[in-house]
Simulated scan of single mutants.
Amino acid sequence: MSTLLVIPARHASSRYPGKPLVPLRGATGEAKSLLRRSWEAARAVRGIDRVVVATDDERIRAHALSFGAEVAMTSDRHLNGTERCAEALAQAGAGFDLVVNLQGDAPLTPPWFVEALVEGLRTRPEMQVATPVLRMEGAALAGFLEDRRAGRVGGTTAVFGAEGRALYFSKEVIPYTGRPYAGHEATPVFHHVGVYAYRPDALAAYGAWEPGPLEILEGLEQLRFLERDWPVLCVEVEARGRQFWELNNPSDVPRLEGMMAEMGLP
């Protein structure tokens, strides 16, 4: 399946302005921007035919070009990365069977997460969108709960049915578990990893819809599909010893740098 991978990146983040240009130091101490690390993660995915950074900001465009990325300049009116991916696809032209949205704040996304999404849509033709979910261990769940108690916007959780069809996504920790879990104990809570694969028809439909109340309340773009009864496939993936986190707040920078150092990522 011919696949376009888009990295949406904007400078005017309300929570963290200039986030794509923030430097992150890996195990060797070399500083690379969040955007460049996300681009390098994209290029490690097998089966991707083209990688494009989609932005509305000249600073991000210039930086992306400096390390060899292809750039699509998109509207500054987009509300989220999915809308920006739709415009990037329109610029790239026809001929792609799938579009992957690798959000520019998740440079630790393992390549097999994305590969699993492509395979999921290949084998489930009735599904329009796919996104990865990762079963949480007790220590990770405790971190999510602590973030919520402290009023921090942490990761997103997902609940889904027996066939993997998404029921809901939330920035709250769902489902309610009722008890604590040991550090490496498996829990019934799934971390939603903010990566998506779409069929082109799904992207075209998405751009024509207004945001619904759940999307607005949660600030989660994928809820627009659920509010319109379009199926989203949750694909369970395995960490395989890799740590994973998104850069949501300035306080996440040392967390990501610590993870990269621990995993030996340059």
Score class of each variant (00 low, 15 high):
residue 2 S to D: 10
residue 3 T to M: 06
residue 5 L to G: 02
residue 6 V to L: 04
residue 7 I to Y: 08
residue 8 P to E: 02
residue 9 A to F: 09
residue 9 A to R: 01
residue 10 R to W: 15
residue 11 H to P: 05
residue 13 S to D: 13
residue 14 S to H: 15
residue 14 S to T: 13
residue 18 G to W: 09
residue 21 L to F: 11
residue 22 V to M: 12
residue 22 V to I: 15
residue 22 V to W: 14
residue 25 R to P: 14
residue 29 G to I: 05
residue 29 G to V: 06
residue 29 G to F: 11
residue 30 E to I: 12
residue 30 E to F: 14
residue 32 K to S: 14
residue 35 L to M: 05
residue 36 R to N: 09
residue 38 S to K: 02
residue 39 W to Y: 15
residue 43 R to M: 11
residue 44 A to Q: 09
residue 48 I to T: 00
residue 48 I to C: 00
residue 53 V to I: 08
residue 54 A to G: 02
residue 56 D to P: 08
residue 56 D to M: 10
residue 56 D to H: 13
residue 62 A to R: 15
residue 65 L to F: 13
residue 67 F to H: 04
residue 68 G to E: 02
residue 70 E to A: 13
residue 70 E to Q: 11
residue 72 A to L: 08
residue 75 S to M: 10
residue 76 D to R: 15
residue 78 H to A: 09
residue 82 T to C: 11
residue 82 T to L: 13
residue 83 E to D: 07
residue 85 C to D: 04
residue 87 E to L: 03
residue 92 A to D: 01
residue 94 A to N: 11
residue 97 D to R: 12
residue 98 L to G: 01
residue 110 P to S: 05
residue 114 V to R: 01
residue 116 A to T: 02
residue 123 T to Y: 11
residue 125 P to S: 08
residue 134 L to V: 03
residue 140 A to I: 11
residue 143 G to F: 06
residue 146 E to N: 12
residue 147 D to T: 02
residue 148 R to Y: 09
residue 152 R to T: 01
residue 155 G to N: 08
residue 155 G to A: 07
residue 156 T to D: 02
residue 156 T to E: 04
residue 158 A to L: 02
residue 160 F to Q: 00
residue 166 A to S: 06
residue 166 A to H: 05
residue 171 K to I: 02
residue 174 I to V: 13
residue 175 P to N: 01
residue 176 Y to M: 10
residue 180 P to T: 01
residue 180 P to M: 07
residue 182 A to Q: 12
residue 184 H to D: 15
residue 189 V to Q: 00
residue 190 F to Y: 13
residue 192 H to N: 09
residue 194 G to W: 15
residue 196 Y to C: 06
residue 196 Y to M: 10
residue 197 A to T: 05
residue 197 A to Q: 04
residue 199 R to G: 06
residue 201 D to S: 14
residue 202 A to M: 00
residue 202 A to Q: 01
residue 203 L to W: 04
residue 204 A to G: 08
residue 205 A to K: 09
residue 209 W to A: 00
residue 213 P to Y: 03
residue 217 L to D: 09
residue 218 E to F: 03
residue 220 L to F: 06
residue 222 Q to A: 14
residue 223 L to R: 00
residue 223 L to C: 05
residue 224 R to D: 06
residue 225 F to I: 02
residue 228 R to P: 08
residue 230 W to F: 15
residue 230 W to N: 06
residue 233 L to F: 13
residue 238 E to W: 14
residue 238 E to F: 15
residue 242 R to I: 10
residue 243 Q to E: 13
residue 246 E to M: 13
residue 248 N to C: 12
residue 252 D to I: 07
residue 253 V to N: 03
residue 258 G to P: 10
residue 261 A to V: 12
residue 261 A to H: 12
residue 261 A to L: 14
residue 264 G to E: 05
residue 264 G to H: 11
residue 265 L to V: 14
residue 265 L to F: 15
